[in-house]
Design a protein around this nucleic acid. Structure first.
Lengths: 205, 205
DNA sequence: GTAATAACTTGACACTGTCAAGATCGGTAG
DNA sequence: CTACCGATCTTGACAGTGTCAAGTTATTAC
């Protein structure tokens, strides 16, 4: 009765809730997560979680935030991990990494960019900050690609960043939401998208 | 007591349900629609709707289907309505029309392309057919643009269609889901996206 | 007119999120 | 060591959800 047993005080409930909730969501989607089942699964009463998260929205925000951090870690390391690639190839890799993340963590992705939080619920301050940081990173990188003439510089950096991100996001959603079903085509779709966004190399016509 | 009164048989319940449900959704989103409130609003008992729609999913499918038809009507008429435009401009118009539709009917758009139906529920046969027709139309048009050298022909038509559609869809979702909030930038974002997807006109570099 | 059937209602069940009030424990002040 | 306090957890309750089963009523077919 030393650990994970029936103490009145769980001791580490907050983190346990986060972990279990993430697991449930990864397995069955956001809709598979109910506060009650979560509590049940962890072995506490229905309302115990409310002492660690204001409400369900707060829990979801915390999970989404972790997702952003994980995602940021992956993409922000790409350039220094592949110094041999030229900018075109690096952009493609970026695109593919993004898509792969969404594909391997579909439910987390849903939470990170879903209306559940951003429209219906309200994103926590922390979530706002973390996601902003991700977009900021993307924005800076787009700017670099513009000065290197790999992306168009005929339009403002912000617009190019929004439009290109929208492409990635759109691909992910179409697959994630079950509209496109052929996940096998994923890579090829990503490559096509990357190629279309990039300025055609001089003389490609 | 001849019309819209308290007959035991409503007489036109199916259509009334569709209309009312569409109205409720347009106003407060899919989540604002509950079978019980809908029935209440129409003035019938909780389970009356179930005699006209197998379940909530079936109702949503019917609404989504109507959305596809409405959307198809708009975009399929564009070419003949604007014969003076060149292909570049027409593509941009197409993009803008798509975005405007999603912007003016955000909740319907949600339903048409949301996981509510496609992933969690199951799309009706009719919905499948209608949406397929829409994509088919898009596909054929992309093919034309490829042969006219306005879009890249370095990649298969299907891939180009998927990638370009994903861009539109991504933009719509980012705005629709509350991730981008500046709806004023909508048109400009659409134009930037269109420009990036199109092959740069010869000599633009 | 009677029988079949379509349309509708009431009752019930198992869920959901979350509030209010009470129980129990761990740590600290005296 | 004791008394208390606040953090933590529990039980009870409420209003809401989708939908099934069984009963009621009106319309239609013969």
């Amino acid at each position: 009765m030393n650990q994970t047993k029936k103490h009145y005080h769980h001791g580490d409930l907050r983190q346990t809730l986060l972990d279990t909730a993430t697991a449930i969501i990864s397995e069955g989607g956001v809709d598979a997560l109910s506060m009650r089942k979560l509590a049940d699964h962890v072995g506490v009463s229905r309302t115990a979680p409310y002492h660690h998260f204001k409400d369900k929205n707060a829990l979801l925000c915390a999970i989404a935030e972790a997702g952003f951090k994980q995602h940021f870690e992956v993409v922000s390391l790409l350039p220094q991990q592949h110094p041999q690639l030229d900018k075109h190839a690096l952009f493609e890799l970026y695109v593919l990494s993004y898509i792969r993340f969404a594909d391997s963590n579909p439910e987390t992705y849903d939470l990170m960019f879903g209306k559940e939080i951003w429209k219906l619920g309200q994103p926590s301050e922390a979530l706002h900050a973390t996601s902003r940081q991700c977009f900021q990173h993307w924005l800076e990188w787009i700017e670099v690609l513009q000065t290197e003439k790999v992306l168009t510089d005929q339009h403002p950096t912000l617009r190019v960043a929004q439009a290109s991100w929208a492409t990635l996001h759109g691909l992910c959603r179409l697959l994630n939401d079950g509209i496109y079903v052929n996940r096998d085509d994923l890579e090829e779709m990503g490559k096509t998208a990357a190629a279309m966004l990039l300025k055609s190399p001089a003389g490609a016509d």
